[in-house]
């Protein structure tokens, strides 16, 4: 069943046509990977799914992105509610310069999901457990989040997203600032999370896409070239450009 369905979607940065007539159906509770050379529009497409691109001056769109059947670009869409339901993890870990606890509690407070201290405590614990961080930092919850290692910062950013109970999680090259060991651990985490969340992930690392994703989208110069089962993309792509890219002939 498809959760996110993109229809004839275009995005312009002022005059620059960054996404050209994109059509794609992303399945529920699967990991979908987006690959393609630098500048092809992967981040732009990902950032369109929670409308965080709205914050960029000059960005405008046409077409639809439907989530659970509702077009999120509809005028009556409440963007804050959308972003609560569609969480996002960025390329560079970006915990807030406040305590670990407050980082996870942030989404609960701003969305008025919980105000009761014991409920917040419980959710913070649950979220940190989900990203396998709890045991290591349960005594340091009041410490600044900026003192954590990069891997832990990224886990914290994922925990922060999970805390508000989204149904979709978008990740933009979540491992690109991590070492290989940390990368594998975050990948394992994503595999665990996919049972509960629909995950869309941009990656530059083709092994990573091959290892953990169910479907893979290949983009080039603002266009979606091919969208298929990951296995097919990497072993038997239908398009010449895809083959050239996955076999490393350019990129």
């Amino acid at each position: 069943m498809s959760k996110i369905s993109v229809k004839n979607f275009n995005l312009y940065y002022t005059n620059f046509h960054a996404l050209k007539n994109i059509n794609i159906n992303i399945k529920e509770k699967r990991i979908t990977a987006m690959i393609g050379p630098s500048g092809c529009g992967k981040s732009t497409l990902l950032r369109s799914i929670n409308r965080i691109n709205d914050t960029i001056e000059g960005a405008h769109t046409s077409g639809e992105i439907n989530i659970s059947g509702k077009n999120i670009y509809d005028t009556e869409m409440d963007v804050d509610v959308l972003r609560r339901n569609v969480g996002m993890v960025f390329q560079r870990p970006n915990p807030f310069p406040i305590s670990i606890y407050e980082n996870v509690a942030f989404g609960l407070k701003v969305n008025r999901i919980a105000s009761n201290k014991s409920v917040i405590d419980e959710t913070v614990e649950k979220s940190l457990k989900a990203v396998l961080l709890w045991d290591d930092i349960k005594d340091k919850l009041r410490k600044s989040a900026l003192d954590l290692t990069l891997e832990r910062q990224q886990r914290l950013c994922i925990a922060r997203v999970i805390a508000v109970a989204p149904y979709i999680i978008l990740l933009d090259e979540p491992c690109s600032s991590l070492d290989p060991v940390a990368t594998r651990r975050i990948e394992e985490l994503m595999i665990q999370l996919k049972d509960e969340y629909t995950i869309v992930m941009v990656t530059h690392n083709m092994q990573q896409a091959a290892r953990i994703s169910y479907d893979t989208a290949f983009m080039l110069l603002g266009e979606l070239i091919e969208f298929e089962k990951t296995e097919k993309i990497f072993t038997n792509p239908s398009r010449k450009e895809t083959e050239d890219y996955v076999t490393g002939r350019f990129g």
Partner: peptide, 24 residues
């Protein structure tokens, strides 16, 4: 990226200013 992180969690502009920007 602090502000972007806050927006991405569903914070409004004012919540972002009050809870993140002013603190930072």
């Amino acid at each position: 990226h602090y502000k972007e992180g806050a927006f991405a969690l569903g914070a409004t502009k004012w919540q972002t200013i009050r809870r993140i920007v002013l603190k930072a």
